[in-house]
Amino acid sequence: MSRRKEDAVILSQEKIAEGIYSMWLKTDAARGAAPGQFISMYSRDGSRLLPRPISICEVGKGKTSLRVVYRVTGENTGTEEFSRMEAGDMVPVIGPLGNGFPLERAEGKRAFLVGGGIGVPPILELAKQMNCEKKQIIVGYRNEETFLKDEFGRNGELYISTEDGSVGTKGNVMDAIRENGLAADVIYACGPTPMLRAVKAYAEEKGIECYLSLEERMACGIGACLACVCRTKEKDHHTNVKNRRICKEGPVFLSTEVEI
């Protein structure tokens, strides 16, 4: 009985782009938190029971606080409820959950750190902690609202793509990689499934080791309900079938192990 759902205290909340919020939380979940892991955030409204899985965007100094950056997905949603909270308010959380990106695989190598859309936030803590030969951060956005851009710029070589071409390469992250003639020995990526499919195909074609952070609907967030599985190539040791729990063994997987 070493863990519990706790009331995290909001230290600050800020709107950083249209519909995108950044929140610093004082929470025990910061202890031992690693890039690529997530926390479950809970609504206080009794009509919304399930956790909202949100990636760890930054771990504060001293490991007593965490930053999350999240998108409000619509009216009357849990994320909208979070966005209305202020410093001093409390939000119930459990974390850190899942397994993060294997940082050690990048040592001495040229790495791609790829983020797309609301998959961008976890790439920040990854970039901050990564120790590699060449740190190439490639992030894709819809438009000129390139949240976290300055922080990325301070933590590696930054390449941006936007769907409307307003900043950086017009197109997606793969277009930015090609346009800039980038190369890597290891890839880390988080973003929408079509982006992850493209990254996976690219990595496998070139034989590059690649880690993908996957997303799925969750109910428990702790590995008990089997809601959040992804298809795997081989039989998984826990489930004994060809699928694996994203909340427990993931959300980060070696690209060649999963089918997306």
Partner: peptide, 8 residues
């Protein structure tokens, strides 16, 4: 194997 996702 169970059903395809989304499951919940």
């Amino acid at each position: 194997e169970g059903n395809p996702t989304p499951r919940v």
